[in-house]
Nucleic acid binder design. Sequence first.
DNA 1: AATATACGTGTATTTTTTACACTAAGTGTT
DNA 2: AACACTTAGTGTAAAAAATACACGTATATT
Lengths: 245, 245
Amino acid sequence: MQGVDWLINLIFIILTYLPHLNSIFSVDCVIFAFDEGELKILLIERNQDPYKDWFALPGNMVNNDESIDAAAERVLYELTGLKDIYMEQFHTFGELNRHPKGRIITVAYFAMIRLNSAKDVRPVIPYAKNASWVSIKELPELGFDHKMIFEKGFERVKSKISYQPLAFELLPEKFTLTQLQNLYELILNKKLDKRNFRKKILAYDILKELDEKQKGVSYRAAKLYKFDRRKYSKYFQNELSFSKD
Amino acid sequence: MQGVDWLINLIFIILTYLPHLNSIFSVDCVIFAFDEGELKILLIERNQDPYKDWFALPGNMVNNDESIDAAAERVLYELTGLKDIYMEQFHTFGELNRHPKGRIITVAYFAMIRLNSAKDVRPVIPYAKNASWVSIKELPELGFDHKMIFEKGFERVKSKISYQPLAFELLPEKFTLTQLQNLYELILNKKLDKRNFRKKILAYDILKELDEKQKGVSYRAAKLYKFDRRKYSKYFQNELSFSKD
DNA sequence: AATATACGTGTATTTTTTACACTAAGTGTT
DNA sequence: AACACTTAGTGTAAAAAATACACGTATATT
């Protein structure tokens, strides 16, 4: 039994580090979209314990060879098929009891996207049974602390949208001012004055008026606009600069 | 050698999980204070590899039995002796190469504090050689990605201070309006008009005028004010509510 | 008493925000 | 063709907020 001494030593060394074994981290994504007049987020139905068969935010472990940002991108793709979504990190959740399997902290991201081709979402790995868009007004119970994560993410969106024109991200490329206003009202949860809204949004000078009109409506068709990213970034630079004076 | 089969098996199992061994996380704190007319942050001089003898933000590993928030509090105390500081999480940094010892992500916190008794800072564990307040204009080179962490934290402070009255946190309990204005100018990095500044800050109605004056100055002494936390929280509730209309 | 220094104050102008209601255009129906 | 219906599109006046701007006053020091 002499020859196994080194083995036993090795095990001791490993055991020393073992407490770290359950110290790992995950990412979770809160993806917003605007569909059928409602704000929706992307949920998966889990196919794995813990919380097998529960609804949850798309999220999974970060690999050891990728940055957190990259992990968020990968995980979102694997669980929903969505690619090339710009997500922004908004908070890291690390309560001790948040994950039944032990000490797992999660870095949460949010994004706001346009729902055209993204409407059909489907997991590409069996970790999730399926993925779907769910109205934030009718959210089912969610696994883990995902309800809280969603809420914090939604708070962030609300506060961000009031000083940055983010809402365009959610609309189809061409939209009417009324659609844009409806979206703002939905997110901010208050009525806005039509004339003042138009005055203000046009004053930002980040919209391009198109020579096109709405189609398929049984009333006077509204003009279509599109978001002018070039003007937007100019406006944005000014916003951020503290240099003047 | 039959009897060690189970040992070898165990080792295999452990090795399977081994990649997670170097997946752990830390917290880092960016603590701002106002001293001698300058904005300073709290730095430690490290006494441990990696970056032994370098300056760095106060930061260390999160234990397995504590939440991240609690870890931030503990680590700050251990490295600087500071207690009961309200810190706010602002970002999690997880680039692959950010830590030379492998995959360690860090959750960053910031706080703004009043420098009276907090002026003397001293590590209570030998992980740091010492702790000190350093002007943000003369920051030394910092270990890890701490320069970037500081910058992101400072950005956050700047943007927050322009819509929330945070500056009081940095001043002594009793302060003059000129001191307050100087601080705002320092953080926002621009000159403000004296009369307009006073008008505005008093309009918020969150200051309490004292029956006391500045002492020890060789010119007309200014009135002292103090921050009225009661009024402040009332004001704040209004700020945050989206309920009206 | 004179000097030096920061304190404390008001008003006019511009800009931004708010409140508010009707006509116009297009669709569908009879 | 006339009509009814529905949403589009538009302007102005009032209030509030932000800005620009300069000098007499109080206190400490000499």
